[in-house]
Design a protein around this nucleic acid. Structure first.
Length: 273
DNA sequence: ACTATGCCCTGGGTGC
DNA sequence: TGCACCCAGGGCATAG
């Protein structure tokens, strides 16, 4: 599940390998057609051919490839996608859905077991991510902003954290981790969180994202960085997929429940409502 | 306007 | 061993 730290790691890996390079050819394989959102696959391949990559940006979980014709190639990996830089003769993986040949002879392989990943080619990146709010690591994501989005909501704190219009880039792993760091029960009704706890939750979101980024992300299943390697952070999480194991803070067994439609992990003793 | 649910997709795990 | 079933979940559409 590539979330903010994973997508940012990929962005940093690919930037020196891609910026200044040109796309020689793109092939979307049979079975991978759903990737192409803004155009039919053959059209998208043709529109990308010959384009130079000027910069790589990121907004939440979206990767933004700025092209030399002013367009942006917006890539979302969803749950099982990866983009791996590889030699031209490297054999395709079982789940390779598309291949990008670069003008220096290297390639990018787009792998995606579940085929949920998307490519948009747009004038303005916002067209491809109309519901995205401030990136969780941007200056626009403040305790006051978070409080304003918690206030008056009848839903859970977990649901608010997963809302990409609130803090873009946070997904299921880091929502659970942030709640544990802040000692807040993820089932807590959002409107019950005041300024004190909103500040704590805000700091916890930054803390978990930065810690994972320092470890090049978490590889619970399919995540790979821009060179095909796993992240290191999944062994350092506090609660995610640790049900039944003792809480590092109080020793109680970590519980798993369904919150906001997602598997949610928390300590029933020291995370308070 | 807000909230909840189902859909997309496929491999891996579980239970019989 | 084999098979049916369920689960994982980001973002969106739809229903209530």
């Amino acid at each position: 599940m590539p979330e903010l730290p994973e997508v940012e790691t990929i962005r940093r890996d690919l930037t020196p390998l891609l910026v200044g390079r040109r796309v020689a050819r793109v092939r979307i394989h049979a079975g991978g057609e759903r990737l192409a959102v803004t155009d039919p696959p053959r059209t998208l391949e043709r529109r990308l051919q010959g384009r130079g990559v000027v910069a790589i940006g990121r907004q939440g979980k979206y990767l933004l490839l700025r092209l030399d014709d002013g367009l942006t190639w917006v890539i979302h990996l969803r749950m099982t996608g990866s983009i791996v830089h590889a030699l031209a003769d490297a054999p395709p993986g079982r789940f390779e859905r598309a291949r990008i040949d670069l003008d220096d002879g290297a390639t990018l392989r787009f792998n995606d077991l579940r085929k949920f990943g998307t490519w948009h080619l747009v004038e303005d990146a916002a067209e491809a991510m109309p519901h995205s709010g401030p990136d969780a690591l941007s200056e626009a994501f403040t305790p006051e902003w978070l409080l304003s989005r918690l206030r008056g909501r009848q839903t859970s704190v977990k649901a608010v954290l997963l809302d990409q219009s609130v803090c873009a880039g946070v997904g299921n792993i880091y929502a659970d981790e942030a709640c544990w760091i802040a000692s807040i029960d993820p089932r807590t009704e959002a409107s019950r969180v005041g300024l004190t706890r909103a500040k704590r939750l805000h700091a916890a979101v930054l803390e978990t994202l930065r810690a994972s980024l320092a470890d090049r992300g978490s590889s619970f299943s399919d995540y790979r960085d821009g060179l095909g390697a796993e992240g290191l952070h999944h062994v350092r999480v506090h609660v995610f997929r640790r049900e039944g194991q003792p809480c590092e803070r109080c020793g109680a067994a970590i519980l798993k429940a369904r919150v906001a439609g997602r598997g949610t992990h928390f300590c029933p003793r020291c995370q308070r409502k």
